[in-house]
């Protein structure tokens, strides 16, 4: 009979389990919402402003754009961290992602729906049976000052707005960071004899799939800040109300120049996400506490009336 392990041994096993779980990289987002925190004073336009270190990030995995040709199936940026702040008038988003090289054509974009109609995340491409709306795209490129405030409603319709309301600034730093992504391997299956196992019906070789989230060291980080007023006078702009959950999508281009002279990623060849959400934190509404207190008083008063009638022998 195996005796119970000592208390120290059990504690060591528990500590090891905690350490393993603590150190296991997880790619799934903590939340699907970018929490845009309410701050006092001006929103930061500098990607290196210290206030960004106090804002929690939401990380989104990225995919190659596959919806439309021409597409590529490998992209540099595997995930993107997003932070947001607002001061009830201006809103700022900080995008942070690993890119080993700083290139003139490196670029990033945010995308929002304009108006109440749903829009497809792929440039607001018209939907066959659903009347969709346009998208508002905020675009930053390393070799161009500021940002471009654009609209699209389908591929090939991207157009810069007459009224430019968005500002952007990017800073690339040659610093170390961690990149998390899902690593997938197909491992040939072996039969009892140690030979390649085959499907008995088709004769195809059989594979097992191994998927795990890995964390790798990387060098080179882009931080890009986009800022704009929460609401504008331009009907082509997305308008943001505090406390609501507008959709948001992200795109990133690695503008590295290949030996062929082509850019590694450009145009529709980019890393993207589909629609997620952001929420601009509303100011604390103290009237909620007041209404809760009124409910307590009314309920207590009702109890008093009922008990009084019960004691008088007159059930309510």
């Amino acid at each position: 009979m195996v005796g119970m392990p000592s208390r120290h041994a059990r504690l060591a096993v528990l500590a090891a389990a905690v350490a393993v779980l603590w150190g296991t990289p997880v790619l799934a987002q903590e939340t699907v919402v970018v929490r845009v925190k309410l701050i006092q004073g001006e929103v930061p336009t500098d990607p290196t402003a210290p206030i960004w270190n106090t804002i929690p990030a939401t990380e989104f995995p990225m995919s190659p754009q596959v919806h439309w040709p021409k597409r590529i199936l490998q992209v540099t940026v595997k995930s993107i961290k997003v932070r947001g702040v607002h001061n009830t008038k201006q809103i700022a988003f900080l995008l942070e992602y690993a890119d080993p090289t700083q290139d003139p054509a490196d670029a990033a974009a945010l995308e929002f729906m304009v108006g109440d109609k749903k829009a497809h995340f792929a440039h607001g491409q018209p939907m066959a049976q659903v009347e969709g709306g346009p998208v508002n795209i905020w675009y930053w490129r390393n070799d161009a000052p500021g940002a471009a405030d654009m609209n699209a409603q389908g591929f090939g319709t991207l157009k810069k707005q007459a009224q430019q309301d968005v500002q952007a600034k990017g800073v690339w730093k040659d610093e170390k960071t961690k990149v998390r992504f899902k690593e997938r391997k197909l491992i040939p299956r072996k039969d009892a004899k140690g030979e390649s196992a085959k499907d008995p019906k088709t004769g195809d070789p059989l594979f097992d799939e191994e998927t795990k989230v890995v964390e790798q060291d990387a060098t080179g980080v882009w931080r890009v800040v986009f800022t704009r007023a929460l609401t504008t006078t331009d009907p082509n702009d997305a308008q943001f109300q505090l406390g609501t959950f507008p959709n948001i999508a992200f795109a990133v281009w690695d503008g590295k120049k290949l030996e062929s002279g082509d850019l590694k990623e450009s145009g529709s060849q980019k890393a993207v996400t589909s629609w997620w959400y952001f929420n601009a934190e509303p100011p604390t509404n103290y009237s909620i506490y007041f209404y809760g207190l009124i409910a307590v008083v009314v309920a207590a008063g009702l109890e008093y009336v009922i008990i009084r009638k019960v004691r008088k022998g007159q059930p309510a």
Partner: peptide, 24 residues
């Protein structure tokens, strides 16, 4: 019961009015 019922009513009222932190 007499203490908890009004507190539960107040708590329910608060939770109905507080802005949701989750997307629709």
């Amino acid at each position: 019961v007499l203490v908890l019922v009004p507190l539960l009513v107040g708590g329910q009222t608060y939770s109905e009015l507080v802005p949701s932190s989750q997307p629709p």
